[in-house]
């Protein structure tokens, strides 16, 4: 387990997370994240063999809502901070499928 964790492929993570990292930053980030992972890995020593994961401090069931339309169309307000709008569409550089 320790083996695979010695290597952290920062560029792969950056690709998944869609952030751009230049070479200088890559080294620093890699060493930061390595030390963070090392700190985190200390918890591995805890025996959790008979413990269930706790997903939320609220140990209760999900609350649902009735099937009602409660929102009125309000496109102009919702799009007021949009970087690029054309005829009510959000637009981005063309994607080739």
């Amino acid at each position: 387990m320790t083996d695979k964790k010695n290597h952290i492929d920062i560029l792969h993570l950056a690709n998944l997370a869609k952030v751009e990292i230049d070479e200088a930053a890559e080294l620093k980030l890699e060493s930061d994240i390595k030390s963070i992972i090392k700190m985190i890995s200390k918890m591995m020593e805890v025996d959790t063999s008979d413990t269930l994961p706790l997903k939320s401090p609220l140990d209760s069931a999900q609350r649902l809502r009735p099937d009602q339309v409660s929102e009125k169309p309000n496109r102009d307000l919702l799009q007021r901070g949009a970087p690029e709008i054309k005829d009510g569409f959000f637009t981005v550089p063309r994607v080739i499928e």
Partner: peptide, 24 residues
């Protein structure tokens, strides 16, 4: 990036699920 790493395939149980267990 740290979160992306711990949620990645192959690490999820080791980190995320483990952490949830200790959380309990």
């Amino acid at each position: 990036l740290t979160g992306t790493y711990t949620l990645s395939v192959g690490y999820f149980d080791d980190y995320y699920v483990k952490a949830q267990k200790i959380r309990r």
